[in-house]
Write a protein that binds this DNA or RNA. Sequence first.
DNA 1: GCGACAG
DNA 2: ATCTTGTCGC
Length: 211
Amino acid sequence: MAEAERIQQELRQRLDLDDCVDVAPRLVAGVDVSYHKDSPRIVAAAVVIDLADGAEVESAVVPGQVSFPYVPGLLAFREVPILLTALGRLDHQPEVVVCDGYGVAHPRRFGLACHLGVLTGLPTFGVAKTPFVGAYDEPGTRRGDWSPLREGDEVLGRVLRTQTDVKPVFVSVGHRTSLDLATTITLDLSRRYRLPEVIRRADFLSRQALR
DNA sequence: GCGACAG
DNA sequence: ATCTTGTCGC
């Protein structure tokens, strides 16, 4: 496991937060993994949506087996392998990938979204449902309100309210994406629910295929 | 030292 | 992540 951390730091050298997506992307993918209650079976799903109209373009669902334990800070080693397979099955190359979890808001600044981004070369960012690292003030109660997620002087992400009077989500950049764009896309994909539509659909498809 | 800890 | 019943609300 110390080996995984070494690999993590190695991959982190390849993280790029400067060459970000500049033009407004259209094809956005969302990925998620579901786990079976009492067997090593897992299923990953990747869903592509066209931001222009919110329509689903395509999806890929792939079954697999757990190959790494869940260790806070090393989630990528558990989910990235099968996520790479799922993304590889897509006919359309997404312009940005939304991950279920964190990007740089991570103990060693290299969460799942960063890991997946570096290995695919694609722009990525993460949307997490619960706090992990960093401190923050509760954002305003209105959809769109946010407050910085920080640790000392560094800003790790944003605590974003995607629905008025609903618990906020935690947005952090992964690879080649700005926090502003990640915020915009997250809000764009969360018109009706707390979580981005691509994440909801990937969650639904992977969970459904698991049974 | 102890507890907490994305999914 | 997954296990869980009802319940309040659009």
